[in-house]
Design a protein around this nucleic acid. Structure first.
Length: 284
DNA sequence: AAACTATTCAACCGCAGTGCA
DNA sequence: CTGCACTGCGGTTGAATAGTT
């Protein structure tokens, strides 16, 4: 039987949405909002399942959706975040206002395909170390390719530095932690001992969420990444990573690093989280 | 012009997590 | 505890479109 838990209605339409359906859905959502997606189709007069309505709204009809090509900054963000968190598309999307997980996932997949094709044709004459193409998403260094086509004009980061990103877990924003732009990262880490035990108020939902301590996850989440400068080899990146780890251990005597807060609004995911960017001029 | 191939991307599927009766 | 309904996520699909021969 063609029966799905989400599709209780007799005639359930599937496939692409018609403009008429779109209008019905927009009309309904804008006047009534959405509390329960499963009852939306019935109330909106649509022969769709609630899941389909939700998807259509989130990915296409939402008024704050952003369309068109990704900007270089967005692209950079995606690459860096993907390097930091892997295929967590919803999480990545939460850092890109107006972009959806689906869009980013699509973009990444076609981009990856291109890259693999490119590098495999290159690899035939260079070093056939080809398995590096398929290593864990935690160790992608896509800027090796991008650096050739994108000029080093960088508005995201004011300094010529190697940049690290790490996720500080669910929290409202870095502001909520008392962080401002250009806060010295050693201050953050120094005070982190206090943050460990804290809980934070999640402003959307009236609930308390546990703050994920920075230090606890630092080793796993931090990843060296060449953001704006010349291409560096994977080996060099790994070496930088080791230097990072050494630095983390020696952070008491640490100085001279800065931190950018990249907290963004929530897009589709439940959790909102912040990403910190730390730049490391000493690596240049 | 037509046939064929590749790419894109909106939408689908199954699953995991959550909440509730 | 159990079963069910529902939501959100990420992998995957395939129709439409773009590109190539």
């Amino acid at each position: 039987m063609g029966h799905h838990s989400c599709c209780n209605q007799q005639k359930v339409k599937r496939g692409l949405w018609s403009p008429e359906e779109d209008e019905k859905l927009v009309q309904y959502i804008t006047t009534h909002g959405y509390g329960c997606w499963s009852e939306v189709p019935q109330k909106a007069g649509l022969q769709r399942c609630g899941k389909s309505c939700r998807l259509r709204w989130i990915n296409y009809l939402r008024p704050d959706i952003r369309r068109g090509r990704f900007t270089p900054e967005e692209e950079k963000m995606i690459i860096n975040l993907h390097g930091a968190v892997g295929n967590r598309w919803a999480h990545i999307a939460s850092h890109l206002p107006g972009r959806t997980d689906n869009e980013i996932k699509n973009y990444w997949n076609s981009w990856i395909k291109k890259k693999i094709r490119k590098s495999s044709s290159n690899n035939t004459k260079t070093n056939p170390n080809q398995d590096s193409r398929f290593t864990s998403p935690q160790i992608h260094f896509p800027y090796l390719n991008l650096s050739t086509k994108s000029p080093p004009q960088d508005t995201l980061l004011p300094l010529k530095t190697t940049t690290f990103m790490f996720d500080i877990g669910p929290t409202t924003s870095a502001e909520a932690l008392g962080l401002t732009s250009n806060t010295r990262i050693d201050h953050i880490l120094h005070e982190n001992a206090l943050l460990n035990q804290e809980t934070w108020h999640h402003h959307d939902k009236q609930e308390m969420v546990q703050f994920t301590p920075i230090m606890e996850n630092l080793e796993n989440l931090m990843l060296p990444m060449d953001v704006q400068n010349s291409a560096i080899s994977e080996a060099e990146c790994l070496q930088q990573r080791n230097e990072m780890n050494e630095w983390i251990e020696a952070q008491n005597s640490f100085s001279g690093y800065f931190l950018w807060d990249q907290a963004q609004g929530n897009i589709g995911g439940e959790e909102e989280s912040s990403t910190l960017l730390a730049s490391f001029p000493s690596f240049l």
